[in-house]
Nucleic acid binder design. Sequence first.
DNA 1: AACCGCAACAACCGCAAAGGG
DNA 2: TCCCTTTGCGGTTGTTGCGGT
Length: 289
Amino acid sequence: MGCRSCEKPKMNYRKGLWSPEEDQRLRDYILKHGLGCWSAVPAKAGLQRNGKSCRLRWINYLRPGLKRGMFSQEEEDVVINLQAKLGNKWSQIAMHLPGRTDNEVKNYWNSYLKKRVMQAQGGSNPKSPTELTSMSTTEPSMSMSMHHHHHHVKNSSGSTTTSHDQDATNVSSNALSAPPPLAQPPSFDHQQAQPKSFVFSDWVPAPESYSVSAHWPASTASSGNVTPSHGGAFGDQMSGSYGALPPPPHQDHQAAGAATGIAGSGYFDLLNMGDIYGGFTSTNDDLLF
DNA sequence: AACCGCAACAACCGCAAAGGG
DNA sequence: TCCCTTTGCGGTTGTTGCGGT
């Protein structure tokens, strides 16, 4: 494991949000060389980041197959069930949610699901995870009211999904295999709930036409000392900055999910990335590819 | 219009495990 | 076997935007 050949001079590593240029450099490097010794990546890719930061950025943001945007009802159920079963083993939970990172799952839990569970357990009748799951599918107004603003409007409005009376294992196995189609209420307001979702395929250059500015606002794509806006807005910009580009096929993955299920399955087909996949080492990647 | 609180999420930090020399 | 480095993981923090007052 040790990579003594990866000599790295002690330097002041850049911290904070990644600029589009840094993303581009890292992405280009990985696409070209595959995954190897992370500690060597910054120097070789011309980045003033430490390897750890590069690894995190790749895993959580740049990696192929990442599915961003809202969690589907099924994904939510999986998280709730597995969290109850495994505890805060986010990496393990994320393994059951293809396209999701442990960080994303963790954030989603901490910022949303945990409150819901606490709220449910705070009542006179503490609910089991299964009950919670059922609740999540039968209380259309709850999460919607909790997320009445921001872009993160949960898709639990009026879901007619039948309650998933199954244990986490079953849930996870469902998630691993072909997931059932999402029961999407016809009245779901996709205008209101605008998922910001994109996957790596959106980034992969059409070789002759790709440029950073095609995906990033020119103002942030041109200078070296850019300070990109916060991630949330970042994501919004991503979604919004497709501009003339055709909308990604999964842009409305909640709707698409009704036909294709969760996990972005099928998105991967858009790419021929065998070289990259071959270099993947993380458990998530093992699962995904 | 300004301020405040909340929510979302990217990224950092620290620790432990893994593995090579 | 020990030491050192890298990697992986979970907890936590920082930043930003939005809605409400």
